[in-house]
Amino acid sequence: MSNLLKSIVIATAGVAVLAAPAFAADKIRMVNSTKVVFETEHPYSALENGFFKKQNLDVSIIHGSGGAASLQAVITGSQDVVYGNGVLGVLTAYAKGAPIRALGSNIRGVPDLYWYVKTDSPIKSFKDLKKGMEFAYSRPGSTTNLAALYIKNALKLEAKLVSVGGPSGSRTQLMSGQVATGWSVYPLNKGLIREGKIRVIGTGKEAAGLVGVTIRVIAANVNWLNKNRDAAKRMMVALEEGQKRTYNSMDQLKSYAKRWKLNFEDVKSAPMDTPYEVSTLLPVAGLDKINKIALETKKIKKLLTAAQLKEFVHPMGNKPN
């Protein structure tokens, strides 16, 4: 009897040990290129609501300090996936031979960006920006730089494009009178709008040339992707589910507000500021335009070929058709 019991215990333990790897969740290391911004909220939604777990994934999320640094982490293999990285940077890195591929779109166009002035400013809209006035953007080659350039060209403005750093640096410089305009992204600084300290003069929707063009992407290290394609596909499914949850659940918006210590009043309208239609994970659109912009801004030395652009995108983790 005792021997039989021992055999059963040993056999059970053996089966458990052998079966363990089969049941272990696939680990994915994700770097979120920006925090607080609404469109980069969806991975947290997927994590908190167990959508990754449902797909048998163990996803860790860290915050990067901007696009280039986050992308570098994925290129070097210290992270597997980058979420919400500027497509211009990702395409440039790919063109330079980086092992990086886009899995999906994070946002098309820049409707969530906005520009503002102090309430007592005579500037009412972009069109009031006269020659020499500072039209703010974050850094050269950034999404805001791109948007500001497109707005300036579309409206034939003679304002001067000025790099002012992130939203907080921009606010400081505007409030202290260093620059004529500030830039931000919804829902950041919405409290100041509510309190009447600043006034919005226009949004990224006026960058007509960028409407429908993928601006931020979800990208992965191709070496990791080739070894973990199934996990990548499941991750994209979970992200899609997380995104739907963010858009459709007030509880998730409350959780978003709580996580980043935002006023819920400012967060409530985030799904309207960044409509769902521009945030769907597919298509990754307008890469031809991004390709040309990369060349014009000297990010790349020659245009990527159609074959390269095709190889660059692995929609939802699938191999390019």
């Binding site: 050269p140 080659g141 790099s163 750093g165 000297k298």
Partner: peptide, 21 residues
């Protein structure tokens, strides 16, 4: 580098963001 103003730091920043190692 941080404020994209001035001399060599601005070039380092520009080259870094271009992935021009």
């Amino acid at each position: 580098y941080l404020i994209d103003f001035g001399g060599l730091g601005r070039i380092v920043s520009e080259m870094y963001f271009r992935f021009d190692t």
